[in-house]
Amino acid sequence: MKLLKFAILALFAGVLIYASNDLPYRGDPDNLMHAERSITDTPVKGNYFIQEAYNDARTPNMVTVVLGDYRSIDTFGEQVVIFTAGLITILVLRKQRRREE
């Protein structure tokens, strides 16, 4: 059983390494991800964030602008997830303490 698990893990690693050899070169500025237009001829969002972030929000740090302005509803969702995680710790351990008493 343990040998079978090792075989599955080795197969998984082999398939992933074989697949990663077909990925584009790391750091190449001509990647499809960094290109001006995508293959369906629509503008790529990362370039828009680099070029227009200062004009839109007067903030030099682009990561802050993307976090707080362009993707702000996403950040709100993440904040609610963190808040819910904190409330779950209260619920789990309070029920535990009641059982001990």
Binding site: R58, T59, D69, S72, I82, I90
Partner: peptide, 24 residues
């Protein structure tokens, strides 16, 4: 206005993260 809006919400995020980590 967008500059100050980002500042306001970052204060909110900071308060939540601080309180939740202490709560855990």
């Amino acid at each position: 206005l967008r500059y100050y809006g980002i500042l306001i919400i970052e204060v909110g995020i900071g308060l939540t993260v601080m309180a939740i980590l202490i709560m855990i």
